[in-house]
Amino acid sequence: MELCFGLLKKEQAVDAAKIIVKAFKQPPWNECWEDTQATKSVIASLENPMDRCFAAFDTQKIVGILFGRIQIYSRDDFYIMMLSVLSEYQHKGIGKGLLHFCEKALKSEGISHIELITAPFDKQFYNKCNYSVSDAVHFEKNI
């Protein structure tokens, strides 16, 4: 495995979208993203100047993605919207590597705070990566 990390390019949007579709079909999400919708989502992030799109590559194949957005509130924060690694590449340090690559890139932009919302089963992963649980509570409603 020849692993490297970098920025996602527009011509890689379809391959990145396939990772999203595959990841969200699995529990606990059990969502059915269509390829076209996932591709639109990736392209929208790539075209948004506040978004950052990172990828993990095994040779030329995209095996993981991390998308997020710079939020300008009381300080410049980065909100991770999505982190996903292909199932056959999980538990090999790729998610942690993506986070580290993202953190380094953001730090060079003067960003010093990252936030995210995730499922309870991911808590251990983020704790291992030195993320702490906040007091925030996530609410949602279908309308």
Rank of each mutant, 00 (worst) to 15 (best):
F121L: 00
S45W: 04
M50V: 04
S45A: 14
K25N: 12
A136W: 13
R75Y: 08
L66R: 02
A16Q: 01
N48D: 15
I65S: 03
D58L: 02
R69W: 00
V21A: 03
I114L: 14
K92D: 02
F67V: 00
N48S: 15
F67I: 07
I20D: 00
L7P: 00
L99R: 08
Q60S: 13
S45Y: 10
E2R: 15
D51C: 14
E47V: 02
N142P: 05
E31Q: 13
G68K: 03
I70D: 01
N127F: 09
E34G: 15
A44G: 12
Q60D: 14
I94M: 02
Q71W: 09
S84L: 01
K141W: 09
I94G: 02
K128D: 13
M50Q: 14
K123L: 09
F139K: 01
E11I: 05
P28Q: 10
I114E: 04
P120W: 04
L46V: 08
L116S: 00
K104L: 11
V42K: 06
M82C: 13
G64L: 03
M50T: 10
C53D: 09
A13H: 01
K25V: 01
A56Q: 05
Y89V: 03
S74Q: 06
V42R: 06
N127E: 11
V14W: 02
D122S: 14
C102L: 12
L8E: 05
L7G: 10
D122E: 10
I114V: 14
Q60E: 14
P28K: 11
N142Y: 10
E109D: 15
E103I: 12
I43S: 08
N130A: 14
G64M: 04
D58T: 00
S87A: 12
Y131T: 07
I72S: 07
V63F: 04
I111E: 00
A44S: 15
L86V: 05
G64Q: 03
D135F: 06
E140R: 11
M1Y: 10
R75I: 08
Q90E: 11
P28M: 08
D51T: 07
E109C: 14
K141Y: 10
K123W: 01
T59G: 02
K22D: 15
A55L: 11
Y73W: 06
L3H: 06
E88L: 05
I72Q: 08
M1P: 11
L106S: 11
Q12G: 02
L98D: 07
Y79M: 08
L98N: 09
H113K: 11
A44Q: 15
V14H: 03
E115W: 08
L99V: 13
M82S: 13
E11A: 04
D58S: 15
L98E: 07
Q90W: 01
H138Q: 10
G110Q: 01
E140L: 06
P49K: 12
E47L: 10
K128H: 12
L98G: 08
H100N: 14
K40Y: 09
S74C: 06
D122T: 05
C53Q: 05
F78K: 04
Y131F: 15
K18G: 03
K107E: 12
S134G: 13
K96G: 13
M81Y: 04
G64Y: 04
E2Q: 15
T59I: 07
Q60P: 04
C4S: 15
T118E: 03
K128I: 00
D58H: 04
E109I: 02
N48P: 00
C32P: 01
L7K: 13
L106Q: 10
S45M: 11
K107G: 09
H91S: 15
F57M: 06
L98C: 08
S45G: 11
L8R: 03
